[in-house]
Computed example of a mutant assay.
Amino acid sequence: MDPDEIGPRLELLRQEHRDLDAAIEALRERAVADQLQLQRLKKRKLQLKDEIAVLEDAMIPDIIA
């Protein structure tokens, strides 16, 4: 991925991650929470976290010792 594209992509992923936090919390507060939907949201949130970590690592230059 082009280094100029990493920053905007990271921000987009971080926003989606925050949105999922809010959606998960709202679903938990329901009297009858949909466990399958909750599981799907949590899985997507973990996928986003992994993708964010990969992009953050790509932004750090390799240091040759």
Rank of each mutant, 00 (worst) to 15 (best):
residue 1 M to S: 08
residue 1 M to Y: 05
residue 1 M to F: 07
residue 2 D to C: 00
residue 3 P to T: 00
residue 3 P to Q: 04
residue 3 P to M: 03
residue 3 P to F: 00
residue 4 D to G: 05
residue 4 D to P: 00
residue 5 E to G: 06
residue 6 I to H: 02
residue 6 I to K: 01
residue 8 P to T: 02
residue 8 P to F: 03
residue 10 L to H: 08
residue 11 E to N: 10
residue 11 E to C: 02
residue 12 L to P: 00
residue 13 L to M: 15
residue 13 L to G: 10
residue 13 L to Y: 06
residue 13 L to S: 08
residue 13 L to A: 03
residue 13 L to I: 04
residue 13 L to Q: 06
residue 14 R to T: 07
residue 14 R to D: 09
residue 15 Q to N: 14
residue 15 Q to F: 04
residue 15 Q to V: 07
residue 16 E to K: 12
residue 17 H to C: 09
residue 17 H to F: 05
residue 18 R to P: 00
residue 18 R to H: 05
residue 19 D to P: 02
residue 19 D to Q: 08
residue 19 D to M: 01
residue 20 L to M: 12
residue 20 L to F: 14
residue 20 L to G: 10
residue 21 D to V: 03
residue 21 D to H: 12
residue 21 D to F: 09
residue 23 A to C: 01
residue 23 A to T: 07
residue 24 I to K: 00
residue 24 I to Q: 05
residue 25 E to S: 08
residue 25 E to Q: 14
residue 25 E to V: 04
residue 25 E to L: 07
residue 25 E to T: 07
residue 26 A to H: 03
residue 26 A to T: 12
residue 27 L to V: 02
residue 28 R to Y: 06
residue 28 R to F: 04
residue 28 R to S: 10
residue 29 E to D: 10
residue 29 E to G: 04
residue 30 R to E: 14
residue 30 R to A: 03
residue 31 A to H: 11
residue 32 V to K: 09
residue 32 V to R: 07
residue 32 V to Q: 11
residue 33 A to M: 05
residue 34 D to Q: 09
residue 34 D to C: 04
residue 34 D to H: 06
residue 34 D to S: 05
residue 35 Q to N: 07
residue 36 L to C: 00
residue 36 L to M: 05
residue 38 L to F: 11
residue 38 L to M: 05
residue 38 L to R: 13
residue 38 L to H: 05
residue 40 R to E: 13
residue 41 L to H: 12
residue 42 K to C: 10
residue 43 K to W: 13
residue 43 K to H: 12
residue 43 K to F: 12
residue 44 R to L: 09
residue 45 K to P: 14
residue 45 K to I: 10
residue 46 L to H: 11
residue 46 L to C: 02
residue 46 L to P: 00
residue 47 Q to R: 14
residue 47 Q to T: 07
residue 48 L to Y: 10
residue 48 L to C: 06
residue 48 L to N: 15
residue 48 L to E: 14
residue 49 K to C: 07
residue 49 K to N: 11
residue 49 K to Q: 15
residue 50 D to M: 06
residue 50 D to I: 05
residue 50 D to Y: 09
residue 51 E to C: 13
residue 51 E to F: 12
residue 51 E to S: 10
residue 51 E to V: 07
residue 52 I to H: 12
residue 52 I to Q: 08
residue 52 I to P: 15
residue 52 I to E: 13
residue 54 V to E: 15
residue 54 V to D: 09
residue 55 L to Y: 13
residue 55 L to C: 13
residue 55 L to S: 08
residue 57 D to L: 14
residue 58 A to F: 11
residue 61 P to Y: 04
residue 61 P to M: 01
residue 61 P to E: 11
residue 61 P to H: 02
residue 61 P to G: 03
residue 62 D to V: 15
residue 62 D to Y: 02
residue 62 D to M: 05
residue 63 I to Y: 08
residue 65 A to D: 09
residue 65 A to P: 14
